[in-house]
Design a protein around this nucleic acid. Structure first.
Lengths: 331, 331
DNA sequence: TTGTAGGCGTTATCAT
DNA sequence: ATGATAACGCCTACAA
């Protein structure tokens, strides 16, 4: 049987109310009883029952992190940011994922918003519409959206347009004028913004945009990179550089296939990725890429969330972060 | 204000006890009231308060997963296994990590075992002694250890010896007799078992073991691989193959440095890693390695844990899994 | 400074 | 088949 407040109270000849106040460091308790109670609590190895406490205070001291997919190192990195910043904060992190579950994302949100299991939520890259996020507002469960802009809730996201523009600028600076662009229109990846950044850069430099140089891919995998490489090389526009907003894994697939075809990188072909996954440093030549500030996103998300839970940060907060262009060998 | 049993009870002209029984599908309720209650519950969008339920049932329907480090893709993969198997099961996963926290691992275990926050725990690769794990037994919180054998609690682990032996055998089959071995004696990695497997394989094939061919590394990183490569090449024993129980990242560092030094792989030097991280397929030549069954470990861990929580699986259960030798290009 | 009493939302054991 | 009632362990007025 676990030790309860009552057990301590009995031994200390006080009531459990007093013990509770001591445990929670409330004022107006004599030093004597304070000492006595603490001593007994220690002896008995007392830990408060967090469930009971949660019921009484209407606060679970837990927060939910809902991720689309634990297989994505991008998502895991954000999670890391959340966890490491959370170390100074006393909230338990409950992890939920939305792929391959019996519940849909929407059902999960409904449930989490109403079950009173968590004091707040961080949603990483949710696919649903803003309407389905409304439930968090309705139930006043503080909630921060990560990796996606959101009008009705707090959000943390990166400026994709600028990241893409910077990368394209760099390639133009290197003398490239026929720059292919590989995109991935999956789910709600902010691919349009990246594409716009690419186009803006071309326009600014007086290079004509042609959709002959735009290629599509359905997933961010090496295999897709290999496949799309063939298409790119068959294109009449013969690009000398490839910018891959679709993601690093596609870029790596492209590099692999190019090397197999005897192409010298970056001399004959420059490749720039997007994300800066760990694999970017493994492939040879190492991958020049647009780094997303993943840790920082997690960081900011939890900061905002805690502020919201503790009653600071009124209104809707948005935090825009910026990518960092990482120059390595592939371009 | 969230909807409670009482609200439903009032509208349905029954008591909250009855509503509770309906919600939980208990028998001995007339179909009429059952329908009536369910209808109102749906209308009001009722979700049970899991905290209150937890207090009443003394069950949180949550389990804790304690990981050493979210930065390790090895750990994340086990976590994935846990999550995906858990999808059929109705337990919330609470995530804790032990690096860079203000609490020590031991303190965390104490707390989790006593706070009644979780119904059970999965500990991935804990570093502490068995004595510190005792608290879970004392508090009768079911607990499964992953990636490490444990005498006093359930555990899931792999046979490292056999994996290492198989890898070494393969290299001997390929004609190598001077096979370097790079180990990493960090924390409680089962490095000794791997080393034993290596030695056993050599003995079986009549190859003399020499510690001139054993090299040490302190972390599983590319940088360490680069460093240790230099040491290996300066060794008088001039190995023609390198087996890297220390892990894939070290093996990848070795490959990178070897290529930079103009060595042909696998012709002039064969390299075999350990783990099968995603990066193993990125490096060129792709890395031949000993795959740890990470997903399966997570799988089995949660299966055992749930059985324990639900009262099956008496005694201490152990599950030994086996590595799989993955032949790629580097050997 | 401490005790009393009520409540948090649910479940469970009795009666009826 | 349903209703009272008492837990579950903790917190928090309010009273003393």
């Amino acid at each position: 049987m676990p030790v309860t407040l009552k057990d301590i109270a009995k031994r200390a000849n006080v009531t459990s109310a007093t013990v509770s106040m001591v445990i929670n460091g409330k004022p107006n308790i004599s030093q004597d009883t304070r000492d006595k109670v603490m001593k007994i609590a220690k002896e008995l190895n007392y830990y408060p029952n967090v469930i009971a406490r949660g019921l009484a205070t209407k606060k679970s001291n837990a927060l939910g992190v809902i991720v689309p997919n634990l297989a994505s190192s991008y998502v895991v990195r954000i999670l890391q940011g959340i966890k490491s910043t959370n170390k100074d904060i006393d909230y338990t992190v409950q992890l939920f994922d939305t792929v391959g579950q019996k519940e849909t994302e929407t059902q999960l949100f409904q449930r989490l918003a109403r079950e009173r299991r968590i004091d707040g939520a961080i949603l990483i890259d949710p696919v649903c519409s803003e309407k389905e996020l409304q439930v968090f507002k309705d139930e006043s469960v503080p909630c921060v959206i990560v990796a996606r802009k959101c009008d009705i809730l707090d959000s943390v996201y990166v400026n994709n347009r600028q990241g893409a523009q910077e990368a394209t600028d760099y390639l133009v600076d290197k003398g490239h004028t026929r720059i292919a662009c590989v995109v991935c229109h999956k789910k709600n990846l902010p691919m349009d913004e990246r594409l716009e950044g690419y186009i803006t850069a071309l326009n600014n430099r007086g290079i004509e945009y042609t959709d002959e140089l735009i290629f599509d891919v359905v997933n961010n995998t090496m295999a897709e990179g290999v496949t799309v490489f063939n298409k790119i090389m068959q294109s009449p526009a013969k690009p000398t550089a490839i910018f891959v907003p679709a993601g690093d894994m596609v870029a790596i697939g492209i590099i692999k296939k190019a090397k197999r075809n005897g192409i010298n990188l970056p001399e004959d072909l420059a490749v720039v990725g997007f994300d800066d996954l760990p694999a970017a440093e493994v492939i040879e030549p190492t991958l020049t890429t647009v780094r997303q500030p993943k840790l920082e996103m997690g960081d900011h998300a939890i900061d905002i969330l805690i502020d919201k839970i503790e009653g600071q940060a009124p209104g809707i907060n948005h935090k825009e972060l910026f990518t960092k262009f990482i120059i390595r060998q592939s371009a």
